[in-house]
Design a protein around this nucleic acid. Sequence first.
DNA 1: GCCGTTTTCGGCCCGACTGTTTTCAGTCG
Length: 547
Amino acid sequence: MLLERIANILELKGENTFRINSYRKAARVIGDLTDDIEEIAKARKLTDIPGIGEGTAEKIIEYINTGKMAKYEEIKKGISEETVALMQIPGLGPKTVAMLSRELGIVGLADLENALREGKLKGLFGIGEKKIENIIKGIELFKTSQQRISIGMAYPIVKRIITGLQHNSQIADIQAAGSLRRMKETVGDIDILVSGANGADIVKAFVAMPGVTQVLASGDTKGSVRVEECVQVDLRVVSQDEFGSALQYFTGSKEHNIHLREIAKKKGFKISEYGIFQGDKKVGGTFEDEIYKMLGMDWIPPELRENRGEIEAAQEGKLPKLIEFSDIKGDLHNHSNWSDGIPTFEEMAAYAMKMDYHYLAVSDHSKSLHVANGLKEEELLEEIEEIDRLNKTFKRFTLLKSTEVDIKADGALDFSDKLLEKLDVVVASIHSGFKQGKDKITGRMVAAIHNPYVNIIAHPTGRLISKRAGYEVDMDKVIEACLETGTALEINCYYDRLDLNDINCRKAKEAGVVVAISTDAHHLDQMWMMELGVGIARRGCWKPKMY
DNA sequence: GCCGTTTTCGGCCCGACTGTTTTCAGTCG
């Protein structure tokens, strides 16, 4: 995003911080849009977007018309991308990078490492022994730092740690915070907050837990470790009367907190991780909701805390009552051992009943998907018979006859309508021809949506978090077709898919399209991932009953 | 650069930590 790049370069140039933040904010709100930016520009409504003023609107229009931004072309002169990237090294900020570039002509990481080796940093203004040591450590950290991981990987780690610690008698409250609590699809590190009297003891117990591979810090109020899964987990200990405000603070997002503090300030309050204050007097902090209440708004569910309008909605008492895991009555996309799954029908049904579900779809792959042991027509017919037989043995529970039918590269479905008609739920999805152009892929999907027997389009974009970008699909056209036919789009809960993502999910909701939250489980112990999908749906503002 | 119950100028979130320029700037979350 060009606006973000402008912000980075301006930062390096030591421009006014507030101007830099304006560019960052503009870049972010545009990234969060569910509507097409060009459409908004055409309707001359860019400045209606909070954070976009006259100046930025002009630049966006210029970019749409010419593919360039004069401002960017102007400021990037003489500054290399490599130099801008140096700011990502922990401990190196814009001031230091600019100084190193000015004094030593350092352009990129290679230059910096050479200069360090040759001892050139010594004696520079503001650089001492310690600073040099920290830059070296920072480079190391930068090189080995992990990408953000899927929330589906982080979630079980948190559950394990919380389960392991909650019996500790010193701990009063324990709760995950950060982007994990907000159910963001990826998390950088994991933040866990506890309240308790003896911080040092709690931290000691934390760093000694099984699964810890490296202790990064262990103090009286904070412990930091790396666990087997190569993720950093931070534990912070606060007193009980600070737990609410600390939870609010550490949950974020940063943008949400900044906006909240602006409002607090205007109302004569000050909020920090230690509490909410009126003058010097602490007026709250034990419970998170009291902070929101004192600021004259409803408590905001963590999943919505991204500064995308949730604060205004809370002020007006217009926050939706979001869907919860307990609202889920079944799962419409699962695989059995008849194709590439592990469990038998009986095991699936028993597990679903234990989860308090009323129904569960058996949606094994179709014949073309050989790698996943796709079912042939006669096998699907057998499967139908077997499920019918089993259903007679259940009370208040139904296994639904289903398939995950392939939308083949030529756009045809892998099973005939005559066969699909015999099923309770038809899930259709793309597993081939990923590299086709946008029109072709969209055409295939729209054709499937128009098939009268297709109920759900699974993993609509095909992306795999941190692994595969997904095929090119025109989501607006897909949504339009779904709206026309009543076909549902899936929120695939599988941890590395989470597809639809939160933005597309909200887009679907705003359009009035139905979504199905399904796990695509191939194993019983993947069925918990429904919780992830519910999180995405909550971020997409879905209520329990839309219709 | 944005924005307005402080409304067209003058603000713009809060606190901790670190290292060094010894009174505070830079960086981070």
